[in-house]
Design a protein around this nucleic acid. Structure first.
Length: 489
RNA sequence: GGGCCGCUAGCUCAUCAGGUAGAGCACCUGCCUUUUAAGCAGGUGGUGACAGGUUCAAGUCCUGUGCGGCCUACCA
């Protein structure tokens, strides 16, 4: 066990504190101010010698015999306190001597400035609010070890302010997106996480079991099909912040559980959705930073609308010099080989196009851009393009090389939807040998009539990465998936 | 899945050719009435991730396992 000796020391102190008749774990404390407020109001408070009541965690202590300095920290800031034996009761000073870095305390005192002009609280009374038994990480270097930072995120948050800042921003981003949607009359809904049939994306699900029903259930990989059922039901604009689960590999941009915001609007098409998304992202960014320019790694990115637009095949043509819109498998394979891409055998036309695009085009999409009008093979839930055969009305915005969303004019022709599902099933069974039944219940819903609808899914974790200059999804998820420490078996 | 790297005190890190482990912070004792990575003097603390091998001798070399990181591949 870590810190065992220090822990024993602290337990001894705990006993002494109890012997003084002090409860080391009391029930609350009334603060007059958050620490952060003091910086703004300090001149007035100093002048009036007004007493303040502050609470926080002790982050540092510097003892000097009859006096001591220390720092306490709350959610809003950090402030130095100064305690002098003659100025507090004997028992308060005795209690103070039994405190450690990491303990929560409440103090009553007045503000002053030290000779180095540092704002400081002169302690009049001190109260222990919670005794800590284990030591905090080193005060100067903080907690560096990434494994420990992820496994004991609470320590990471205590010690690394920039980490706290990222998660505050994450919350602000979600708040402002939610607000943006609600202002535009979108209704927030909850749909099932446990689904008896998964759909809305192509990914392997996590499987679980319901005992009393005696059936296997899946954790959702997307909530798309449920939200569109609600549009059928007359909820014209709906959205959900959805925790989705995909049983796939993990890396810098994939965690097995992640957050999507999906929204659907009746009578919108993908052009409406494009404008909506770009304005929403820009507005979130502006709310966060008061502007549209952000830094991501080596890139300066400008999110100011309007964003560039390129069709899927147009972007490919720029890279290959060939219009691949009507290319068959052979021609696509040839183009891929010419560009030096390694090909597995038996790739479908859709997979080939996908491969060409992600290898040749994606990495260069740094400034915000909409890639539109994808091939129909890789978009089973999108409506056929109104002008061009073989394409669908779909867009994916890319920023800093990330695909941050996916949207379409939703396919609402039930007979077409059935054909597309059946095509998918054939593909899947051919390539992966997986059984993947058609969602008959969803088709039935479509047969009752889905109005023309625009749909959008935004990858929240990736958006947060982008807006906080984070380079791993683990840095924007509080408790990323880890293997258990004890190993398996 | 593949490659490379890491795992030494609670934390951050050393330990040049294999010779029985060291610093700073934290902690303990003492001194210190404006310090701020406080200072000074002294001290506690390690089955060196785990298991095996080579060797008179292994933190150090070798093999395996575990966990993690980075890169790469896969994944709409």
């Amino acid at each position: 066990m870590e810190g065992i000796r220090e822990r024993q020391q602290r337990i001894l102190k705990l006993d002494k504190i109890r012997q003084m008749g002090v409860n080391p774990y009391p029930y609350g404390f009334s603060r007059s101010h958050a620490i952060g407020e003091l910086t703004e109001k300090h001149s007035e408070l100093i002048e009036k010698e007004e007493e303040v009541l502050l609470a926080g965690r002790i982050m540092a202590m510097r003892g000097h015999g009859h006096t001591s300095f220390g720092d306490i920290k709350d959610n809003t800031g950090r402030i130095q306190f100064y305690i002098k034996d003659e100025k507090v009761t004997e028992s308060d000073f005795k209690l103070f001597k039994l405190l450690d870095i990491g303990d929560f305390i409440g103090i009553k005192g007045v503000l002053f400035k030290t000779r180095t002009e540092e704002l400081t609280v002169r302690v009049k009374e001190i109260e222990l609010l919670s005794k800590s038994l284990l030591p905090l990480p080193e005060k100067y270097h903080g907690l560096q070890n990434k494994e420990l930072r992820y496994r004991r995120r609470y320590l990471d948050l205590i010690v690394n302010d920039d980490v706290m800042d990222i998660f505050i921003k994450r919350s602000q981003i979600i708040d402002s997106m939610r607000e943006y949607l609600k202002e535009r009359r979108f209704l927030e809904v909850d749909t099932p996480i446990l689904q008896s049939l998964y759909g809305g994306a192509s990914a392997r699900p996590f499987t679980t079991h319901h005992n009393s029903l005696g059936i296997d259930l899946y954790l959702r990989i997307a909530d798309e099909l449920y939200l569109k059922r609600l549009v059928v039901g007359g909820m014209e604009r709906v959205f959900e912040f959805s925790r989705d689960f995909r049983n796939e590999g993990m890396d810098r941009s994939h965690n097995p559980e992640f957050t999507m915001m999906e929204c659907y609007a009746a009578y919108w098409d993908y052009n409406d959705m494009m404008k909506f998304l770009q304005d929403m992202i820009a507005s979130i960014c502006n709310g966060l930073y008061g502007g549209y320019k952000i830094t991501y790694g080596e890139y300066e990115i400008d999110l100011k609308p309007p964003w560039e637009k390129k069709t899927f095949f147009g972007a490919l043509e720029e890279k290959t010099g060939i219009d691949l819109k009507n290319a068959d498998k052979k021609e696509l394979e040839k183009a891929a080989l010419e560009k030096g891409l390694a090909l597995e055998k038996g790739l479908s036309r859709g997979s080939l196009l996908d491969l060409l695009f992600s290898e040749l085009v994606e990495p260069e999409l740094i400034q915000p851009i909409f890639i539109t009008d994808h091939p129909i093979e890789i978009s089973p839930l999108a409506k056929k393009h109104r002008e061009v055969d073989g394409l669908v009305e779909r867009f994916e915005p890319y920023i800093a090389g990330f695909e941050i969303a996916n949207a379409f004019s939703e396919l609402n022709d039930p007979l077409d939807q059935r054909r597309r599902f059946e095509e998918q099933v054939r593909e899947k069974e051919k390539s992966a040998g997986e059984f993947h039944p058609v969602d008959e219940d969803y088709i039935m819903a479509l047969e009752h009539g889905l109005p023309p609808t625009g749909g959008l899914g935004v990858g929240i974790d990736r958006l947060v990465m982008l807006l906080t200059n984070s380079h791993s999804i683990r840095d924007v998820i509080l408790f990323p998936q880890m293997r258990p420490e004890e190993g398996r078996d």
